[in-house]
């Protein structure tokens, strides 16, 4: 057996969950072919979705999934940060508040009264917010869910002491690199690709659907110019507001564009 991994101390990896659906940490288990190599390269110290074994910190890398939605969350993320050398957030919940951030635009107490028989059991914050809003984050991996190849790339880059190759450019670049024909130009299908960060593998445009913006705002997105074109393609303000208010509703640029179109309803 090659002594390679025995000779060096394997970094301790922890995977933490906050308000989320678990889909992003599932991406790690979904790595299948590469999973054994990952388990070989790191010591999985805390990952409840995969194992009950919980090894004490501190941790070399913490992957954090989910948003901060309760006072308990807000306190817990600080403790995790204190025990983590590198903290990487994964997914739209952790990087932008997730779909549950839709409550940031409405009256949370009203929701609680409407939904729960005993509202007094519910202890929640009025907002769902990104991890970055609470503690220092070393790297943010976008996506709802994240792309497993990008997750491997981030782990890989960390293990090898280099910068992850996760470009913040538009979905359009990804479509063009793949040779996918633009659905907006060739079919008149409204698409958030021009303002959305690449990384999903241009899943929807490959199947003649417009981009839903799962990977959140790209660098310097011009959402107002895109909204104007969406109008030209037949969308009303309500549809535009809804498009920007999905998994990344509370990401700053999407929030502003959503607000701009809700106000004019």
């Amino acid at each position: 057996m090659p002594p390679n991994h025995m000779a060096r101390k394997r970094p301790k990896l922890a995977v933490w969950k906050f308000s989320s659906c678990d889909g992003c940490q599932l991406s790690l288990l979904d790595c299948e072919d590469e999973l054994l190599a990952v388990a070989d390269a790191v010591e999985i110290a805390y990952f409840l979705e995969a194992t009950r074994v919980a090894i004490q910190g501190p941790y070399d890398v913490s992957l954090v999934e989910g948003s901060i939605g309760t006072p308990h969350d807000a306190e817990r993320i600080r403790r995790i940060r204190a025990r983590s050398k590198v903290l990487i957030t994964i997914g739209a919940c952790a990087t932008a508040g997730g779909i549950q951030a839709l409550r940031n635009f409405r009256d949370v107490d009203g929701f609680i009264r409407a939904v729960y028989a005993r509202p007094d059991f519910i202890d929640t914050l009025a907002t769902s917010t990104a991890i970055r809003d609470h503690v220092t984050v070393d790297f943010e991996l976008h996506g709802c869910p994240i792309n497993k190849a990008q997750l491997l790339e981030v782990l890989n880059a960390f293990l090898n002491g280099r910068r992850p190759v996760v470009p913040p450019h538009s979905q359009c670049i990804e479509c063009k690199l793949h040779g996918t024909v633009c659905v907006m130009v060739a079919r008149g299908v409204p698409c958030l690709g021009p303002v959305t960060q690449a990384g999903c593998g241009n899943l929807c445009p490959r199947f003649e659907r417009g981009c839903y913006g799962c990977f959140g705002p790209k660098e310097t997105p011009n959402t107002a110019a895109l909204a104007k074109q969406l109008t030209a393609l037949g969308w009303g303000d309500a549809e535009i507001a809804n498009a920007f208010r999905s998994f990344n509703a509370d990401a700053e640029e999407f929030r502003r564009e959503g607000d701009a179109h809700e106000r004019t309803e």
């Binding site: 450019h169 538009s170 359009c172 670049i173 063009k176 690199l177 633009c182 690709g193 021009p194 303002v195 310097t220 997105p221 011009n222 110019a225 895109l226 104007k228």
Partner: peptide
């Protein structure tokens, strides 16, 4: 008006 999406260059 420009989306800086890079389509033109691609």
């Amino acid at each position: 008006r420009c989306l800086n999406c890079a389509n033109c260059t691609m």
